[in-house]
Simulated scan of single mutants.
Amino acid sequence: MKFKLKALTATLFLGSSLLGANAMAQLPQNATAIEVPAQSIQLTQEWDKIFPKSDKVEHRKVTFKNRYGITLVGDLYVPKGATGKLPAIAVSGPFGAVKEQSSGLYAQHLAERGFVTVAFDGSFTGESSGLPRNTASPEINTDDFVSAVDFLGSLDNVDREKIGVLGICGWGGFALNSAISDPRIKAVATSTMYDMTQVMADGYEIKMEPNPKVPYERTSPMTTEARYKMKQDLANARWEAAANGYSLNGKAEDHLTPQDKITAETPRFVREYSNFYKTKRGFHPRSVNSTTGWNTAMTPSFINMPILQRAGELKAPALVVHGEFAHSRYFGEDAYKALGSKNKELYIVPGANHTDLYDDVNGKIPYDKFEQFFKANLK
């Protein structure tokens, strides 16, 4: 099956077409070859980001594959007029967002400051391929970052000895995990990070303080008994998911509270998320958080396969950026303490909550800090 993507043409085949004539001839007589339909990818060519296009960078849409054969789609940003081989940064996140939102904003700003950057959609989301849709995997999403490094290192204008990664929100954990596993990554930064495996296994370890001027108080993680009950519920729900090809997604209103359902009892961090993803400020039709819910069969893999288990072995320089009043601050503080890097820094943005570091609305994103970090360590 062939399909055109305007400027791009791709052919994706699974099943018997991969075997070839010789291999088919060698199959036992009682073997059965099954052809699985290919997945087409529709790429949007017009500028549809939540932020304006910069006249200081050159932009083009790119594709590359991860080691699972999933085609990832990204936006490549290059400083206008740049020559020679440049340092490069792969950017992704937040969890449930797309490259047209925060990651693209970060990538464009860093490109203005002299880096080749790629903001990409993770497997199964946005414009990237992968079935079923709207799912995630701690292993595959870590490899997405590593594969973005493969891609950047293949470019003529990139110095492959000067490649870093930057992960936002839930992709901050994947960025750290990729740097722990791949020494080619020379510097790693996170912004308002989550460890998605930790939150899915332990729940939110915070007291729901309603006052936005008061830092969240850390509480105890989920008990073993409560986690077992959650796993029972998830396992029972899998019967329906399996009967539907694992394609079921949760309801959008259950995933993230819409604006018209916000009440005085709504936790403040949920209000912050809704104010970004469910309003003109950050809405995007391809974003899981803006539209649909996550795949219903996704969570158990995050509970049982924690990332950052070898954080103490990280040697690359690391910058962990978080907001003073972010509900997620403890994820960054825990990760920072665990990282083995001799060159590491925890930078707290005064007065910022979690989503203040998603966009430029409140002017809280410390671009200067990220620029200084990457220029000091990608040299």
Rank of each mutant, 00 (worst) to 15 (best):
T32V: 15
E272Y: 13
L27V: 06
F13Q: 14
K379D: 13
L72Q: 03
P212T: 01
R218M: 02
A235T: 14
K85M: 13
E139L: 04
T296C: 00
K61F: 03
P215Y: 05
I140K: 04
I140C: 01
A242G: 06
G323H: 06
F13V: 08
P366M: 07
W171P: 10
S147H: 02
D260I: 02
E217K: 15
G114L: 11
Y228N: 14
V361N: 12
R184I: 09
N343R: 07
E161S: 14
V158D: 10
Y336M: 01
D182N: 13
A97N: 13
G293M: 00
N295S: 09
V91P: 09
K369I: 08
R310Q: 15
I89Q: 02
F269K: 00
T44I: 11
S92C: 12
M208D: 15
L378Y: 12
F174G: 00
G340P: 05
D121H: 06
E253L: 07
V62S: 03
H354Q: 10
E313V: 02
S178F: 02
V91K: 02
R268P: 04
H322P: 02
N177V: 05
F120Y: 09
T44S: 13
K251A: 08
D121I: 00
L152P: 12
D368Y: 08
E112Y: 05
A33I: 00
F283A: 03
M196K: 01
E313W: 09
N249T: 13
N249G: 09
T197N: 10
E253P: 05
Q39D: 09
F331R: 03
V146H: 01
T44A: 11
G282V: 11
S54L: 11
S287M: 06
E240R: 12
D202H: 13
D156W: 02
L319Q: 11
A31K: 06
K379G: 15
R227S: 11
